[in-house]
Design a protein around this nucleic acid. Structure first.
Length: 458
RNA sequence: GGCCCCGUCGUCUAGUGGCCUAGGACGCAGCCCUCUCAAGGCUGAGAUCGCGGGUUCGAAUCCCGCCGGGGCUACCA
């Protein structure tokens, strides 16, 4: 009988929701939906130092914004609740105790300072560092604070990676490692495989930084007598411009919610993320989520990390914006220009559409509608032309077409070029060198406001 | 240091022994369109396929070595 697919992401609420989380979530969702499986969200909050509840809320908000919703999670429950690791510590403690009882782990009383000294010594002697096993062989007397350390059995660990094929690690190189911290909380390396096993996760899809961690987790799974996941998939890392891994600390621009605030469309971000590190083998660049479901497969995933390219994202985002219906664009624009009513936004949209790499940039084109520009001094000839514009405009019905033809008539009579005629008008109206086409610039403004901006200069 | 992953235009990539005088996309340059800015159309520059050895009639593609980058090696995740 085929076991139904269960995948998961396990972000930790130690900061803003990260781009990498979105990327991993995407691949997990894609795989789950494709296989008719279940997507689980598990919050990895075992870092008591850095966790904050508000960060957890941010993860929900960001993932939901992207439309990457989960089937089971801390906020919706599920058959394997709880889904917050801090609420599962009894399980980890119990499993750690079982390891100790079975002679597969032991209490370690070493202080961080002592361990640091061991490491330094190893470095000095230029030998690879592995824990000395002091606490296994002759633990210090009279100490009560301890961590639980796994006794690495050694030998070879093999597993299947859906991207890289068969992987093989020599665990004799791995020293005994901590599974339970002295504060009674598990370490990621322990909590993660335990939960994966207990929650019946069948495929572990995560970032490449976990590739070398996999043997640690597999040893634990074996020691505990659990079934191993069927397969792993280690996705290529998203790199910063300097080629290093995008990190929360070094790269604040990786904050997911920032993408929303800057006016990226969820569709575009998802599309871009999919293309980063994966390609369909065709020249198609624009993918809806449904199309991704169709064509995505792990065997076409890249093995090397990929640098995040904001310019390409902007282009893709523009493509997506242009594909939106006018009405849909208007609705999405509302949050970015709260000063304007929907009707005004609707009227601006046809002109705005081809000019926005990001929704937030609508402000640059529209803020003259609620901000009064300063009035520059005009030379006599320009002033004369402005007056002729005022004259025709006064008689004009205040809509796009009539304004455009009235203006064109005035240009013709003036004998100068459209550019020479329109540019001063643009400046008077918007205070800018760049604006929507001049008839839009006029039409979006109430007639009396528009005319007064011209009149006070001429 | 040890282990693991990786290495094609600036960036993302196609490419699995001859179809490659290495293709596409973003970006960049020029032209067209044009009231500004975009969008759109056309054209173009841009990669001795990290380097050095092999194997082969023939290698970006296979093998070895080196170099370079990244990740892991924490009582972070």
């Amino acid at each position: 009988m085929a076991v139904s697919v269960r995948v998961r992401i396990a972000p930790s609420p130690t900061g803003f929701a990260h781009l990498g989380t979105a990327s991993t979530a995407l691949y997990n969702v894609l795989f789950a939906r494709k296989e008719g499986g279940t997507f689980v969200l598990r919050v990895d909050d075992t870092d008591t130092e850095r966790n904050r509840p508000e960060y957890e809320a941010l993860i929900y908000e960001s993932l939901r914004w992207l439309g990457l919703d989960w089937d089971e999670g801390p906020d919706k429950g599920g058959p394997y609740a709880p889904y917050r690791q801090s609420e599962r510590v009894d399980l980890y403690r119990q499993e750690a105790a079982r390891l100790i009882k079975d002679g597969k782990a032991y209490r370690c009383y070493c202080t961080p300072e002592e361990l640091e000294a061991e490491r330094k010594q190893a470095q000095l002697e230029k030998r690879p560092y592995r824990y000395s096993r002091r606490c296994l062989k002759n633990p210090p007397e009279g100490r009560s604070v301890f961590a639980v350390r796994f006794q690495v059995p050694g030998g070879e660990v093999r597993f299947t990676d859906m991207i890289r094929g068969e992987m093989k690690f020599d665990t004799d190189l791995i020293g005994d490692f901590i599974v339970m911290k002295s504060d009674g909380y598990p370490v990621y390396q322990f909590a993660s495989p335990v939960d994966d096993a207990v929650m019946k996760i069948t495929h572990v899809i995560r970032g490449e930084e976990h590739l070398s961690n996999t043997p640690y987790q597999l040893m634990l799974i074996d020691a505990l007598g659990y079934d191993r996941p069927q397969a792993y998939a280690h996705m290529p890392l998203i790199l910063a411009a300097d080629g290093s891994k995008l990190s929360k600390r070094k790269h604040p621009e990786a904050n997911l919610i920032l993408f929303r605030d800057r006016g990226y469309l969820p569709e575009a971000l998802l599309n871009y993320l999919a293309l980063l590190g994966w390609n369909p083998g065709t020249t198609q660049e624009i993918f809806t989520f449904e199309e991704l479901l169709e064509s995505f497969s792990f065997d076409r995933v890249q093995h090397a990390g990929a640098r995040f390219d904001w310019e390409k994202l902007d282009w893709l985002n523009g493509e997506w914006i242009r594909r939106l219906s006018d009405e849909e664009l208007a609705i999405r624009l509302q949050a970015f220009v709260p000063e304007l009513d929907l009707e005004t936004i609707r009227r601006a949209v046809p002109a705005l559409k081809t000019r926005l790499p990001r929704l937030a940039q609508a402000v640059d084109y529209l803020d003259y509608l609620w901000k009064d520009p300063s009035t520059p001094a005009l030379d006599p000839e320009t002033a004369q032309r402005v007056r002729s514009a005022i004259e025709v405009l006064r008689e004009t019905q205040w809509e796009l077409e009539p304004i455009e033809s009235a203006l064109e008539k005035a240009v013709e009579q003036s004998g100068v070029s459209k550019g020479k005629f329109y540019n001063p008008l643009r400046d008077l109206l918007t205070g800018k060198k760049v604006s929507l086409p001049i008839h839009y610039a006029f039409a979006l403004l109430p007639k009396d406001v528009a005319l007064s901006r011209l009149e006070r200069a001429a």
